[in-house]
C-alpha cells in the first residue's frame, strides 16, 4: 500500500506522531494490527533494508496515525520524511484485540507501547466500556499525548521510573491494586512489563491480552524470525508474532522464552 504523509510531528526528542492518508488501509485495518513501513524515502539506497513494524495508534476519516520512537537509522530517516511524501507499507498485518461492549477494562501501556493502546482505548470507549489507562515510562519524555488520552479514557494513571511525571514507580503497582475491578486487561509495552501484567491478571483470574513486539524481517509470516512460544494444553506451540500475533493471550505466552 502507498499513503501520503499528512503530518510528521515531533512530540519530543524521542517521539513522533506520523499521520498518513490512505483510504484503502483505513477501510481494512482493525484495532491491534500493525504495518511494516518503508523508512527510506528514496529508492536509491538499500540501507536500511527492511521495513519497520509499527503499531497503529489511531484512525480518523481517511487517515491513520502511528506513534514511533527514534531507535536507530530507520526511525531517524522516518522522522525526516516531509509532509506530502508518498510512503509505502505492507498492511494491515497481524491479529486484533478482542473488542468488548460495556465492560470494565484496564489498559496498560509502557513507553512506545502506547501506540496500539491509544486506538484501543478510543474503540472501547465508543463501545461503551469503562476504560482505565495505566501508562508508564522511564521519564516524562516517555509519556506522550496525555491530553488526547484523557479524552478517550475514564481514568488516566501516569507513572514514571524517576517521578518526573505522574506517580513515581512501576505502572504495574497502581494497576495491581485495582486488578479485581476489571473484566478484561489489555497491555502493550516492554516484555518484562507484559509478563508482570499477565501474572497479576492471571492471579486475579481476569483475562489479559498483550501486544508483543519482536524483530521482524517480513511481517508476512514467511521469515520465521519472530517466533513467540505459546502454551496450548500440554503443548508448547510456535506462533509467528506477525501473523498469529502481535496480540496474544497473556496467560498462554511462555514468558521464560520471551523475556531473556
Amino acid at each position: 500500500m502507498v499513503g501520503k504523509i499528512v503530518r510528521n510531528q515531533k512530540l519530543n526528542d524521542k517521539y513522533y506522531l506520523l499521520e498518513i492518508k490512505c483510504e484503502e488501509f483505513v477501510r481494512e485495518a482493525k484495532v491491534g494490527q500493525f504495518i511494516m513501513i518503508n523508512t527510506r524515502h528514496q529508492d536509491y539506497t538499500n540501507d536500511p533494508l527492511l521495513r519497520r513494524p509499527l503499531g497503529v495508534a489511531n484512525i480518523e476519516g481517511d487517515k491513520f496515525s502511528l506513534v514511533y520512537m527514534i531507535v536507530g537509522k530507520g526511525t531517524r530517516l522516518l522522522s525526516e520524511c516531509q509532509k506530502d511524501t508518498e510512503i509505502s507499507f505492507s498492511a494491515p498485518l497481524g491479529s486484533t484485540f478482542t473488542l468488548l461492549r460495556k465492560k470494565r477494562t484496564a489498559l496498560l501501556a509502557g513507553g512506545i507501547g502506547i501506540a496500539p493502546v491509544y486506538w484501543l482505548a478510543k474503540t472501547l470507549k465508543e463501545a461503551g466500556c469503562v476504560v482505565d489507562l495505566y501508562y508508564g515510562g522511564r521519564t516524562m519524555d516517555d509519556v506522550v499525548l496525555l491530553e488526547e488520552l484523557k479524552e478517550t479514557t475514564d481514568h488516566l494513571v501516569v507513572t514514571t521510573d524517576d517521578g518526573s511525571a505522574g506517580i513515581k514507580g512501576l505502572v504495574t503497582d497502581p494497576f495491581g491494586e485495582n486488578v479485581n475491578s476489571y473484566d478484561q486487561i489489555y497491555a502493550c509495552g516492554p516484555k518484562g512489563m507484559l509478563r508482570a501484567v499477565s501474572e497479576i491478571a492471571m492471579g486475579a483470574d481476569v483475562p489479559v491480552e498483550v501486544s508483543l513486539d519482536e524483530r521482524m524481517a517480513c511481517g508476512l509470516g514467511a521469515c520465521l524470525g519472530c517466533i513467540i512460544y505459546v502454551k496450548e494444553g500440554d503443548e508448547t506451540l510456535q506462533k509467528r508474532c506477525c501473523v498469529e500475533g502481535p496480540v496474544f493471550d497473556g496467560s498462554k505466552v511462555v514468558w521464560d522464552t520471551v523475556c531473556k
Binding site: L49, E214, R215, C223, T257
Partner: peptide, 20 residues
Amino acid sequence: VPGNPMPRIMETTSGMLNAI
C-alpha cells in the same frame, strides 16, 4: 523441525543475518 531459539534475525548494513 522446530528451528533455533530466538532471537533469530538481525538487520545489518544493506542486509540481514538469520539463524532460523
